[in-house]
């Protein structure tokens, strides 16, 4: 319960802060006329980034609820913690490296080194695939050791949370694939936006993975 309440509290704080910026106390019925001096023109880049951030809020809500369920279920007597396979540390490193590669790719793209940026993004793509393969290997190790999904709720949560996180990574890989596929046909600014969005998403999923990893090993 605490996790989702904390998340909602943070969100409410953000919303209240945003509301305070919006001058919701103006009296719109007074002062007909032009009030667009401080309005900025429509920007595709800002919209795309905002869309991504809203999406990240949705994912945060999703995983907060899972974490809440995890804590509530953990206190039942039949909970048997499972050992974390060592490969998870390797995977963590792979995901971190993937995000860093995207970040550098974005920075090189800003300096118009288009080809180098492309190679860096491809590297990031490969590392992310390696992460997924590593997660799959962790699943195999656990299953082989007899930690099956239906044996214990701790196992079930492990498979469920890593699986859902993996699906989100896979979705990111799909978007990055599209961006790379169209890379040479697109202008630098379009590529920069795509890579920027991907790298923000990657960093978010890395942070989420760290939290999940901590959550899953905190038993």
């Amino acid at each position: 319960m605490n996790v989702i309440i904390l998340f909602m509290a943070v969100l409410v704080a953000i919303v209240v802060w945003w509301i305070l910026l919006q001058r919701l106390t103006v009296k719109p019925w007074l002062g007909a006329g032009a009030t667009f001096d401080d309005q900025r023109p429509y920007s595709r880049d800002i919209s795309a980034k905002l869309g991504l951030w809203v999406f990240l809020a949705v994912i945060t809500s999703l995983f907060s609820l899972f974490a809440t369920a995890y804590y509530m279920r953990m206190h039942v007597a039949d909970w048997r913690p499972l050992p974390e396979p060592g490969i998870l540390w390797t995977n963590t490193f792979l995901l971190l490296a993937s995000g860093i590669a995207l970040q550098i790719s974005q920075m090189t793209l800003r300096r118009q080194k288009t080809a180098l940026a492309r190679y860096l993004s491809i590297t990031a793509w490969c590392l992310a695939i390696a992460f997924l393969v590593g997660q799959w290997a962790a699943w195999q190790q656990l299953s082989a050791a007899g930690y099956l999904i239906w044996n214990n709720p701790a196992n079930a949560f492990f498979f469920l949370l890593t699986g859902l996180h993996g699906i989100h990574i896979a979705g990111g890989i799909w978007v990055l694939s599209l961006a790379l596929w169209r890379y040479q046909r697109r202008s630098d600014s379009e590529n920069l936006l795509a890579i920027q969005l991907c790298s923000q998403y990657w960093h978010y999923l890395f942070a989420l993975w760290i939290l999940l990893f901590w959550l899953l090993s905190s038993t």
């Binding site: 032009a34 009030t35 309005q39 429509y42 905002l50």
Partner: peptide
């Protein structure tokens, strides 16, 4: 959400 926050036309403030 993104459309309401980003694509309002000139002069369309939130309170309008």
């Amino acid at each position: 959400v993104t459309t309401i926050l980003q694509a309002r036309t000139r002069g369309m403030t939130l309170m309008r």
